[in-house]
């Protein structure tokens, strides 16, 4: 059985920890007050209901995930359609698009925090200044900070959607489009009735993959804002991390992680159903 070693490893490295995580989430483990540790039942989950920081992070997670995914797909698709029209130089564009993908998210977060977004010296701030929008505390202002981290994620990962959709576009059979032209479909109709339905499987997969990644996004935000200012960019992921590893409240952190996990599973389940459904 060639599959056996992989199965064992996967069980050991993913499934077993998962069970352990569930167990931990039912415990009170506070490394700052170890004497209080013990079984806590559902207390961690009950606590969440009245924890405004949890609700805030949940809301931020949803905003962050939907906006980044929608932006990536819309921008990626538009760019792919555009680039398909360009006869030459596609390779150069592809290389440019590869760059953000291969960079470590934590480094991207740092890049943006310093070289691009810092007031007065950052590239974005300079451009904004030159265009007459003035200088801003891009990561210091709560609302702008959320916009900024969304922009960072979108910047790094739109190329993914772009490249995937470009490849699927290029693999579509040309004769279908020729037939559609002969059938008097104009450019918009061809896009609506031919391109989009044919691309649908690829788009759905991109949406699923990007949603999973957005839900587990961590390093870029962690590096750019650390979840702040305050809790302005503290998505569930960061909240669970901060609770566990800066406040050392592992039990509650585990419970938060379980909630994130449940959300991820529910969303992916729904998405896969949707994909199979049609």
């Amino acid at each position: 059985m060639l599959f056996a070693p992989a199965l064992v490893l996967l069980v050991v490295t993913t499934s077993a920890p998962l069970v352990y995580l569930l167990w931990t989430s039912l415990m009170r483990i506070d490394l700052t007050m170890p004497f209080l540790s013990g079984f806590a039942g559902a207390a961690n989950y009950v606590k969440m209901g009245s924890d405004p920081r949890f609700w805030n992070s949940l809301l931020l997670t949803l905003i962050y995930t939907t906006t980044t995914v929608v932006l990536q797909v819309v921008l990626g698709l538009s760019l792919a359609l555009l680039v398909m029209q360009i006869p030459r130089g596609q390779t150069v564009l592809r290389v440019a698009a590869i760059l953000p993908i291969v960079l470590a998210p934590v480094v991207v977060g740092l890049f943006w925090r310093t070289l691009l977004l810092s007031p007065d010296f950052g590239l974005v701030d300079l451009v904004s200044h030159a265009l007459g929008f003035g200088s801003h505390a891009w990561l210091g202002d709560p609302q702008l900070a959320l916009v900024s981290v969304i922009a960072i994620h979108t910047w790094q990962w739109t190329p993914f959607a772009f490249l995937v959709l470009l490849a699927s576009l290029a693999s579509l059979p040309p004769d279908v489009f020729e037939a559609a032209r002969i059938d008097r479909a104009n450019a918009w109709q061809r896009f609506r009735r031919i391109t989009l339905p044919l691309l649908r499987p690829a788009i759905v997969i991109v949406v699923i993959m990007r949603t999973m990644i957005a839900l587990s996004a961590f390093a870029a935000i962690f590096a750019a804002t650390g979840g702040g200012p305050g809790t302005a960019t503290e998505i569930l992921n960061l909240y669970a991390y901060r609770t566990s590893f800066t406040e050392f409240n592992l039990g509650y952190g585990a419970a938060l992680a379980v909630v994130l996990l449940a959300i991820t599973l529910v969303i992916s389940f729904l998405m896969f159903r949707m994909r199979r459904g049609r």
């Binding site: 993913t14 352990y20 992916s268």
Partner: peptide, 14 residues
């Protein structure tokens, strides 16, 4: 699909 944050606590403890 498992979010890394969900796994890291058990990993840490183990």
């Amino acid at each position: 699909m498992l979010p890394p944050v969900g796994l890291i606590i058990p990993y840490y403890l183990v």
